[in-house]
Each structure stands twice: as C-alpha cells, then as structure tokens.
C-alpha cells in the first residue's frame, strides 16, 4: 500500500505552497482553460511562443495540491523548450501517470517524477494531468477550453 507521503512529496507540497509562474500573461499567444468537473479544479494556461519555442508560460486558477503543483512544475519545465520537446514531454508524463514506468524513465523526468505517486490514486490522476492536457491543447489546436472528462 502506498503511503500518503508518496503522493504528497515535499516537491509537491512546496509547489502547492508557492506555485511558480503563477499569474496572467498579457501578451500570450495561446490562452487555454482547463476544467476538471469532478472536483471543480479550474486552471487557465497562458503561453507565449517565439520561433517554435515556449518563450513564456504562466497559469492561474484554483485546485487541489496535486493540480496546482503539477501546473507549477509543468510551467517551470517547459519554459524555453521547443513545441516538439514539450509535446514529447507530455507523452512521457502521461505515461508516467497512467502506466507502470521503470526507474530510468522516472529519472529522465527529473523533478517531474515527484508526480509519479499519483499512479496509485486513480481518482487523482486527472488532477495531475489537467495542466498537461491544457499544454498539449495549447500547442496543437486553437480550442479554448479543455476538460479532463
């Protein structure tokens, strides 16, 4: 049985207390709203692109610790990466959240591996994946709202 501290790791608690890149982005190219209707998590993701790169990324919204920390960690990680790198990262994180991944894959993800504890809590996977789905939508389409449902 997984312990609660495996879900609420120090990195998660820290990013929940002090979310990075929190706030609006006035000159964003893409603004995407993400909603998790089950628990009322709601986040807005702002992305500014420059020559195929995520030049700046910020978010606002309310949510549980997992959802806030995941948003915070995501923005921290994708800032400065190319669109293709970000989309590859989405796939990796999605795999980590939903499938059994090995130690090496988690290590590759670095700090993001802190989210891997969610796997043992099926009702919380959507909390962790919300920001990442918003990211993918922002980078692949012009839709304005996404939902984890």
């Amino acid at each position: 049985m997984s312990d609660l501290t495996d879900l609420y790791r120090e990195v998660i608690l820290d990013h929940n207390r002090q979310p990075r890149n929190f706030g609006e982005l006035d000159d964003a190219d893409r603004v995407i709203e993400g909603v998790n209707p089950l628990c009322g998590d709601r986040m807005t993701l702002y992305i500014k692109l420059d020559d195929g790169r995520v030049d700046d990324v910020r978010f606002t919204g309310t949510g549980c610790a997992i959802s806030v920390a995941s948003s915070s960690l995501m923005t921290e990680r994708v800032k400065g990466t190319t669109v293709d790198e970000s989309l590859a990262l989405f796939k990796q994180v999605h795999r980590m959240l939903t499938e059994q991944t090995d130690e090496n894959e988690c290590t590759e993800l670095g700090k993001l591996a802190a989210l891997s504890g969610v796997r043992e809590y099926p009702s919380r996977i959507k909390c962790a994946s919300l920001a990442w789905h918003a990211l993918r939508t922002a980078l692949t389409s012009d839709d304005e709202a996404i939902s984890t449902e």
Partner: peptide
C-alpha cells in the same frame, strides 16, 4: 487552505 479534494484523499487513506 487545504483543498477539499486533498482532504478526501488523506481521509480515505
């Protein structure tokens, strides 16, 4: 400031 969803998971454990 603990979100209700976090409370639910902690209590469930």
């Amino acid at each position: 400031k603990i979100h209700a969803h976090d409370l639910g998971t902690i209590l469930d454990r």
